[in-house]
């Protein structure tokens, strides 16, 4: 964890209401895919926690949906603006237990952190299957980037306008060694009830601090109260209950 300044190098819309921002700066504190950053925005007291989509030595990419005041402000930030960021927050995904054929399951704006994960799985010689769910074709993000990494990609949309019609949970393949998920709570609950192999799920929460001191984002788990920002945001399926 560290506080640092980043310079915005790109901020562009990539789908309906979804934006991709690239920031240049020191990324040394980011150690695992699925970690997040907490952005300070002028005129807003609390920082905005956003998952890291991907990163290199001196650049970080975040992909976010405009849902409120903070993200609306973010969508208007211009190239060259300097941002105060708490970086390298949370635990992130552990790629060690992935097995031979890991399955990545993303829903909507939960998809971005899986891209950084897919890249690291590819770097360790794995061929991830990727299952992405969206409402409609206008909401689809990053699918082609997973393909370019060499992943097998299946898209599901609620209205059938892209890929298969239905939910990601309707399209779980028969064979996979382990799964990694990020998406809306109903999707995560369905996965906890349905999946036959173990996996890791990334949660979202309203946060105060983002680094474990305010207890604002705590959830109940099989092992007692856990902070989404500190012990999470990624939890093992065995830690979570279906009433998350």
């Amino acid at each position: 964890m560290t506080q640092t300044q980043y310079i915005v190098t790109c901020n562009e819309q990539i789908a309906s209401g979804i934006w991709s921002m690239r920031l240049r700066g020191n990324t040394a504190a980011i150690t695992a895919p699925g970690q997040f950053v907490n952005l300070q925005l002028p005129g807003l007291f609390l920082r905005r926690p956003i998952s890291v989509c991907d990163w290199s030595e001196d650049e970080m990419r975040i992909v976010y949906k405009v849902v409120g005041e903070g993200t609306r402000y973010m969508s208007r930030i211009e190239v060259g603006v300097s941002m105060n960021v708490l970086t390298g927050l949370g635990n992130g995904y552990d790629i060690r237990p992935c097995g031979d054929s890991p399955l990545l399951i993303g829903g909507g704006v939960g998809v971005p952190p899986l891209l950084g994960l897919a890249k690291r799985l590819r770097m360790s010689g794995k061929a991830p299957q990727v299952l992405l769910g969206f409402n409609s074709d206008k909401d689809v993000i990053l699918a082609d980037e997973f393909t370019r990494l060499g992943c097998t990609v299946q898209v599901a949309t609620m209205d059938g306008s892209c890929g298969i019609r239905g939910l990601v949970t309707d399209a779980i393949p028969d064979h996979y060694s382990y799964y990694y998920a990020c998406g809306p709570l109903p999707m995560l609950r369905a996965l906890l009830a349905q999946m036959t192999q173990d996996g890791q799920l990334s949660l979202e929460a309203r946060m105060g601090c983002g680094f474990g001191v305010c207890m604002g984002c705590t959830i109940q788990t099989q092992y007692g109260p856990q902070r989404v920002c500190k012990e999470g945001p990624v939890f093992r399926n065995t830690e979570l209950t279906t009433d998350i």
Partner: peptide, 14 residues
């Protein structure tokens, strides 16, 4: 949850 809310520039609720 949720147990945190923002109050613009002025602060927060917990």
């Amino acid at each position: 949850q949720p147990r945190i809310a923002e109050c613009g520039n002025y602060g927060m609720l917990n």
